[in-house]
Design a protein around this nucleic acid. Sequence first.
DNA 1: GTCCGTATTGGCAGCGCTGCCAATTCGGTG
DNA 2: CACCGAATTGGCAGCGCTGCCAATACGGAC
Lengths: 348, 348
Amino acid sequence: MDEGGNEAFATGDAEPFDGTGRRPITLADVAREARVGESTVSRVLRSHGSFSEKTRARVEAAVARLGYVPNRIAGTLASTGSRLIGIVIPSLTNIVFPDLLRGATAALEQEGFQSVIAVTDYDQDREEAVVGSLLSWRPAGLIVTGLEHNPGTRRRLAASGVRVAELLDTDGPGLDIVVGYSNRAAGEASARHLVGRGYRRIGYIGHDLTKDRRAAKRYAGFRDALRETGMGPAGEERVASPSSVEAGRQGLAALLERVPDLDAAYFSNDDMALGGYFHCLAHGIAVPGRLALFGYNGLDVGRLMPQPLATIRTPRVEAGATAARLLCTGSPATVVDLGFELIEGATA
Amino acid sequence: MDEGGNEAFATGDAEPFDGTGRRPITLADVAREARVGESTVSRVLRSHGSFSEKTRARVEAAVARLGYVPNRIAGTLASTGSRLIGIVIPSLTNIVFPDLLRGATAALEQEGFQSVIAVTDYDQDREEAVVGSLLSWRPAGLIVTGLEHNPGTRRRLAASGVRVAELLDTDGPGLDIVVGYSNRAAGEASARHLVGRGYRRIGYIGHDLTKDRRAAKRYAGFRDALRETGMGPAGEERVASPSSVEAGRQGLAALLERVPDLDAAYFSNDDMALGGYFHCLAHGIAVPGRLALFGYNGLDVGRLMPQPLATIRTPRVEAGATAARLLCTGSPATVVDLGFELIEGATA
DNA sequence: GTCCGTATTGGCAGCGCTGCCAATTCGGTG
DNA sequence: CACCGAATTGGCAGCGCTGCCAATACGGAC
């Protein structure tokens, strides 16, 4: 009607009219603006195939002039594989999973992939649901945590044919790619270390092991290694909540109540151990003279305690990065054991 | 072959053959299997439009038989709006951002949306890049952190017409939806609280404020409030690294070296304050008798220290959830100030 | 039994982009 | 100056799904 007389109507074929937020600009608009074919624009934008320098400049100028943003939804649908990787983690509360995410998203970005994340709250049924949800985005790959999945999840993964990387655990058979370390061995190493340092009344303070399978494996390794020495745990306390500083503090308090002559405490992770340390500080319990403390994960906070925490450092960021890289590069199925490092610290 | 005599081969008319990893199953396959039209399948799967109970059952049976997983890429392209929300955070190292993510993804999931996250490392140029990248997924909305963005980011956001929620800061003009609290007011409240408790030689220990704009605003509020009382900070220490327990410990050590008669330390956040607390423990500095400590964020760990940390609790999870909900429901532009809570603790 | 309004249903044209293939252009070569 | 292989380029058919609209079925009211 008025000037130019158009707007939403893509009437003839000559209505670029990017305007101030009307009809979204498409690749066809760019092609018209640059006076080249659509496929040429596509080639230039993806630096794929051949085109002259002059063409590249024309296309780039048109893109800039129109403020064109490619539509990856359309691009993904048209091409074979997507550039998405789904990441499934049990929790965002425990810093180890953001660490894993950090490694994965950094590597993914480098390879030109984007990540979609989902959280299960340590619930296998929720895992099945979010895996289904992620699969509907037709990702190039999926990163999941641990090796334990319910049958529905396994079936969906298998049926989808999507590559899968299972992280942070190598104690058991994997589906495809496995990147991590042995939680069982970590538990054993912790027990042996404590025994080697002369502790004899060693207790365990853990959280809800039915949900956190990797913590359960560490516990099993710890317990079995202790039994091999003929002693076994001097006492155990399982807090019915997820792991946290608070759970560690309460757990140690409760255990000491029941087993006053404990000389060492093995916690299911560093957060719990930090809670235990706070309990000791608050109650004047000398560490490690009266009670030794041992954690798991090797968090920064443990290193900076007045007495550095004895713990096991796990390569979480590296595991995320490695898994991402293997998925992006289409590695064959494999198991990568990144190992762990025992940190002697000063609390045990 | 065996019982029932079907399985993979829906021998219909032309090679359905889902088989074990062959041609992916599409909605058309389901329609053929259920002997209904494609649009009917679509309607049933989305519970949208009308169809008979008998049809629903037929379709659902076919879906189950074939193990069909809808392709959201195609669905999104065909329909108008996507069910994706992009989330841009500066870091995954500081637990406050996973907290924000937690609130947002939980609310998003409830509304049937999925989140795509990107990390900027506190770099505005990287923010511009990741915003561009997220926009190419044509999200229904974007959640970003803070109010400061470079011109390129603002231009892209405006041009895209996508709804935006800016989080964790209300000190300044927003683009669209703003959910958070005043960092400036938090800094002021901290300063007034310390002054009110009788401290007079109050120092500041912070991290790299050129990148972390919200921490800079807290500092400004803190400094200005102190100046109003006529005293101003007794000393300042800026660690050149991101905030961490280590930075707090080193920062306090350095500041005490220069200003030995400090009677209180205000940290840019709880992680830093925890580091400071560890320094005090390690060096026998009585808290708060000899030195008071004040943090920011209200992390769990602070509450569980032998002496609960004096700090300000911020509603991070709620901010994420609120922003997500406002975006999903298409709320008009608005500013939601969630406020904060001063926790007296025992360290100041 | 006929007719009409409503509940269901199917057909098909795109959504914006990529992959394939044919068409055109460009530089030498003989 | 005609000719040939390589480098560029454009056309167009889908990718799998949704939205629109026409077609059909159903269920009383007459």
